[in-house]
């Protein structure tokens, strides 16, 4: 069965179309990534799929239940880790987990076992009986993750799960998510700003910008499709003959000069490097440095959305949001 079928989902806030006619589906047991710059509409999509917001138009099926007609059915099959804080800071970590597990009808002995297990994954076992109010930002985030992982839902939504966590914690959470996906066949939709995370975890990725899906494929296919390798040559002065020769080669797509460097867009950079060296040698061109850059998901992303997810505007905005989040959590 298909875990999620989204059909022309649209959400308007006054005159802003936050989600614009989005359709895609997620297979049962798939780990699906949703990538997009700030404000693209990722969280709004998840809010509709988890029945917190009512779509303006369109519909979706989650594990067979319609989000509009059978929200109770949807809720009994899902779990979500929210992007924004959603803990009760007046309770201890363990109480937060305990209450969550009880809401999902997990019986006492199983509850104890799973709580101990997720606390270990997020490395909070020692802090479990402290009030959440006194947790650090990263500890709160880890507790939210632990809570979302307790009840083994059929469909799990993760909204930027590892935002603001250190590399080591992030890695152990990735492994837990992967394991949950494998062992229990949990279907997962994940939004993230970390390309590495999407690349490592996701079977397929949808790139979303301004409420619209602009690409959808496996990470590998996305990379092949959208960007060539880049070879950068530090050549003190570029002879005309070299450019003429390069233009004849089929594997050279584009020739640019960037701050005194010669930048080539090529296919199969690694295979063609020897031929390039041969050519340079025969023309007697002296090169002081060479670098080969193979595309990352980040390049694909920049290419498609025209914005780097982690730089400039984006990071400034998310820094502001982090600060607000911290203030709210107090």
């Amino acid at each position: 069965m298909t875990a999620i079928v989204i059909d022309n989902l649209t959400k308007r806030f006054d005159d802003l179309v936050a989600v614009d006619n989005v359709s895609f589906s997620v297979k049962s047991g798939e780990l699906f990534g949703l990538l997009g710059p700030n404000g693209a509409g990722k969280t709004t999509i998840l809010n509709m799929l988890t029945t917190l917001l009512v779509p303006t138009a369109g519909s979706a099926l989650i594990a067979g239940s319609d989000i509009k007609k059978d929200p109770d059915g949807v809720r009994s099959n899902i779990g979500i880790i929210f992007q924004d804080p959603s803990l009760d800071i007046g309770l201890t970590g363990r109480e937060n987990l305990e209450f969550h597990a009880m809401m999902y009808n997990i019986e006492r002995s199983e509850r104890k076992k799973r709580i101990a297990e997720v606390l270990k994954v997020v490395n909070l076992s020692e802090k479990a009986d402290t009030l959440v109010e006194y947790y650090s930002g990263g500890m709160k985030r880890r507790l939210e993750i632990a809570r979302g992982l307790i009840h083994y839902p059929r469909v799990l939504f993760l909204d930027e799960p590892t935002l603001g966590l250190d590399a080591q914690t992030r890695r152990s959470i990735w492994d837990y998510i992967k394991n949950l996906n494998k062992e229990y066949g949990t279907s997962i939709i994940l939004t993230t700003h970390y390309m590495e995370e999407a690349d490592y975890l996701c079977d397929r990725i949808a790139i979303i910008d301004r409420g619209k899906i602009i690409a959808l494929d496996t990470p590998a296919n996305l990379k092949v499709q959208y960007k060539r390798d880049r070879i950068t040559l530090a050549v003190p002065d570029i002879p005309e003959s070299l450019v003429t020769e390069l233009e004849k080669r089929a594997w050279v797509q584009d020739i640019l000069s960037e701050n005194g460097n010669l930048v080539l867009s090529v296919s199969k950079g690694e295979e063609n490097l020897p031929e390039l060296f041969h050519l340079l040698h025969s023309l007697g061109v002296s090169v002081s440095a060479v670098s080969l850059h193979t595309p990352t998901l980040e390049d694909v992303f920049i290419h498609l959305t025209g914005a780097s997810i982690r730089e400039q505007d984006g990071s400034r905005r998310s820094a502001i949001r982090d600060r607000m989040r911290r203030r709210m959590m107090r």
Binding site: L52, N105, M328
Partner: peptide, 17 residues
């Protein structure tokens, strides 16, 4: 307050009617 601090949505996505 629960809405402001986000806890309400945690309650609202559970299967509780």
């Amino acid at each position: 307050m629960d809405r402001q601090y986000g806890f309400l949505k945690e309650v609202m996505v559970t299967p509780a009617s």
